[in-house]
Design a protein around this nucleic acid. Structure first.
Lengths: 189, 189
DNA sequence: AACACCATGTAAGCAGTTACATGATTAG
DNA sequence: CTAATCATGTAACTGCTTACATGGTGTT
């Protein structure tokens, strides 16, 4: 019942196909909600059946047809109702890498080290993408100007949270790498 | 198949009952893995059936009996094997509050504001708990001494990551509150 | 007297993952 | 020539959540 709110959040940006949403979830919304394409297609069916969204088939040549979904009035009302709900259930995280880090001392420290290095690289990549998204949103304005004057601040605030998160991934990952390298050198030297 | 690795990570600290694990997951491991008691009881059954852990029944008076689980040799081997697996699947987050923040401009900004304030309070509470855990782990040593000399660094590194995360929650939340208050004042004044 | 804690579990239902399938188009 | 992109979906499975049940003990 909560994926649908994430979908409606994405549809506030305008109509989109299941495929579009899969990409959007992978890019901008990914820092607070993950969903596979299959989940999205199923949820879109249900939402359409319940009248929260409507589909518009667009025929394309040299491309498969697509169904563009957009929010109905009932959908917008549902979004508004959702924002008034209290409390939000606590955020859920599942991070396999941190499970491995936790067990590092009873496992293969070299392999875990490599996993941390991968994570740092990934965080840097995401950070660069978010930075481009931020520049596009700001569109020449400063952050202060934007936060005071823009019609919508929600997407900008969530983007800032995502950027903070990835920055911390880089910072923490580099610390962890230094620590592991220091201990490895100590054991060998 | 991944919850069990989190369980084994927790059992590296020593034998524990399902009830103990539920508390531990809520406290120290919560920053990278969430699990309900029901999930744990079910997974413990399976793991015992597969020989990764063994149960020891402890009879108590004035308290219900409990089953204390501990890792077997096969369990330790499984932990080691898990740390060598590459890659780790990307970390999954689901944060309802951020979905609401995303849709804030089409919803009830006052209610979302209250949700952010709750989140900041919760983050402060968690941060204080993690700080106590950290002090207990350090046990008089400085962080540098600990990271170089301690037998195990995994749990300390994951704790640092959790603390960073909660600190960012506080920092970001306070910024978001300032922004929303500024915009509200602007509309009224 | 009411509530929270200890300690375990069942049952039902919803959510999420994985593998597979289609079939044309464009980029390297 | 291979791989990736576009665009959708089915089927089978595994995992997770919610509600409920038990029953004694300690706390306010």
């Amino acid at each position: 019942m909560a994926l649908r709110n994430a979908v409606m959040a994405a549809l506030l940006e305008g109509e989109a196909s299941g495929y579009d949403l899969a990409k959007a979830f992978d890019a901008s919304v990914a820092n607070f909600w993950m969903a596979t394409p299959q989940q999205l297609y199923r949820e879109l069916e249900r939402m359409a059946a319940e009248g929260l969204i409507t589909a518009r088939v667009v025929e394309q040549d040299k491309r498969p047809n697509k169904r563009l979904f957009s929010l109905t009035e009932a959908g917008r009302a549902a979004v508004h109702a959702y924002t008034t709900e209290r409390p939000s259930r606590p955020s859920a995280i599942r991070d396999e890498l941190l499970v491995k880090v936790q067990t590092l001392d009873a496992g293969d420290a070299t392999a875990v080290r490599a996993g941390i290095a991968d994570r740092v690289d990934l965080a840097r990549t995401k950070l660069a993408r978010y930075e481009r998204l931020r520049t596009a949103l700001l569109d020449g304005r400063t952050e202060e100007q934007y936060l005071v004057g823009a019609e919508r601040v929600g997407p900008y605030l969530t983007l800032l949270r995502g950027m903070d998160f990835e920055r911390e991934n880089v910072r923490w990952g580099e610390l962890a790498l230094r620590v592991l390298d220091g201990r490895a050198a100590q054991r060998c030297g």
